[in-house]
């Protein structure tokens, strides 16, 4: 019996890979542990009400609700706005385009998904905020809605291409059968392909939401930066604050010290938990789909 592993003896290769393996796998554990440990002081100072406090004033009060609400609002908005476009283009690409055209579209999407957030931020601050203000007749264009719109554009390529993968992984025989039963091409898509691909589509959307929720720079520049719940709460044309944007604005000041730092880390922990939940849900769905 040949030993397939090259690690039957503990040479330098063993130690190198072992160390690297532990480092790679340990990073996330350390990350999570640091988030928990470093956020203890703020929970000591504020209690669990840190999570639903509405007032944040460095040095005095730390309440995370406006930021949590802002994060949920902008990502929710982004998803609602991006879904029709992403799904339509995914269906078109997967079901109606030729193989070569499909590859071209997918390649273009890979490229677009790589556009750095700061470029979207620049676009947002110099064009989109003004555009939103003028089109919707607002007194100012730095709003939750603007941030959501910008995020929607940012995650369009990601959601589109993941959805397309989910659709094309539906077996071709199903389509042939449906067509031979007299369904039109569109009916085949809506009644056969999409229902089959549903878990995969949902997974794609979840991953996209997770990506959007963690975006810092683009949101930071257009969201308004005010740590306050909109009045009334569903008025998304009001300014607000998201978790990453808050961290981005205050981190340089708090760096490493004090309750303020702990409060920022605790915000990071909240964000981490939200993003991880979304990612795992998306991941489970996508794997189930296959």
């Amino acid at each position: 019996m040949i030993q397939h592993s090259m690690f039957h003896e503990k040479g330098p290769v063993f130690w190198w890979t072992g160390l690297a393996g532990v480092m790679a796998a340990g990073t996330i554990v350390i990350l999570f542990a640091s988030l928990v440990i470093e956020s203890v002081p703020v929970f000591k100072a504020e209690g669990i009400s840190f999570l639903w406090g509405v007032d944040w004033f460095a040095g005095e009060n730390y309440g995370a609700l406006p930021m949590i609400f802002g994060s949920l609002a902008v990502t929710g908005l982004a998803v609602v706005m991006v879904l029709p476009f992403a799904l339509a283009s995914a269906i078109l690409t997967s079901e109606f385009l030729s193989g070569r055209a499909r590859l071209m579209v997918k390649a273009a999407m890979e490229l677009l998904a790589g556009v750095p957030g700061i470029i979207y931020g620049l676009m947002g601050i110099s064009l989109l905020t003004i555009w939103v203000r003028d089109v919707f007749g607002l007194i100012d264009g730095n709003t939750l809605f603007t941030a959501g719109l910008l995020l929607a554009v940012m995650i369009l390529p990601t959601i589109m291409t993941l959805s397309e993968d989910a659709l094309s992984s539906v077996p071709g025989e199903l389509r042939d059968t449906a067509l031979s039963l007299g369904l039109t091409r569109m009916e085949t898509v809506t009644k056969v392909v999409v229902p089959q691909a549903l878990p995969g589509l949902a997974g794609a959307v979840f991953l996209g939401i997770g990506r959007a929720m963690g975006e810092t720079i683009a949101v930071m520049l257009v969201i308004g930066g005010i740590d306050r719940l909109p009045q009334p709460w569903f008025n998304l044309f009001a300014p607000g604050q998201s978790i990453p944007s808050k961290i981005g604005r205050e981190a340089a000041e708090a760096l490493g010290f004090d309750v303020q730092w702990s409060a920022l880390i605790a915000l990071g922990l909240v964000l981490f938990v939200m993003v991880m939940t979304l990612t795992f849900a998306g991941n489970v769905l996508l794997r189930k789909a296959r």
Partner: peptide, 8 residues
Amino acid sequence: LNAVPTII
């Protein structure tokens, strides 16, 4: 690790 928001 891949899903962690970069600001963290």
